[in-house]
């Protein structure tokens, strides 16, 4: 597995953290992980919903000092 790619979507209103995640997943291989950083509270719910719907795996979801960290493993 390669190093985890960080998607720094702090302060992203448009396109926003979920759109950044969808774009970034195109650049990693199946089985690799990436971590989204977000300051948008809504993304802590939106991203897990989308990840579950598409079938990827959410491996971490926590908040630290106002920044949400969501780690996703690409499944397909």
């Amino acid at each position: 597995m390669s190093d985890t790619k960080i998607v720094d979507a702090r302060g992203s209103f448009c396109p926003g953290p979920l759109m950044e995640l969808i774009a970034a997943l195109k650049d990693i291989s199946v089985g690799d992980e990436l971590e989204v950083l977000s300051t948008d509270q809504g993304s802590a719910a939106d991203i897990p919903e989308w990840v579950a719907k598409v079938g990827h795996t959410l491996t971490a979801n926590f908040e630290d000092q106002g920044v949400y960290h969501l780690r996703i493993r690409k499944a397909k």
Partner: peptide, 10 residues
């Protein structure tokens, strides 16, 4: 639209 609402900007 790709995300959970009809535009990125809430």
């Amino acid at each position: 639209y790709p995300i959970g609402r009809v535009h990125s900007l809430e």
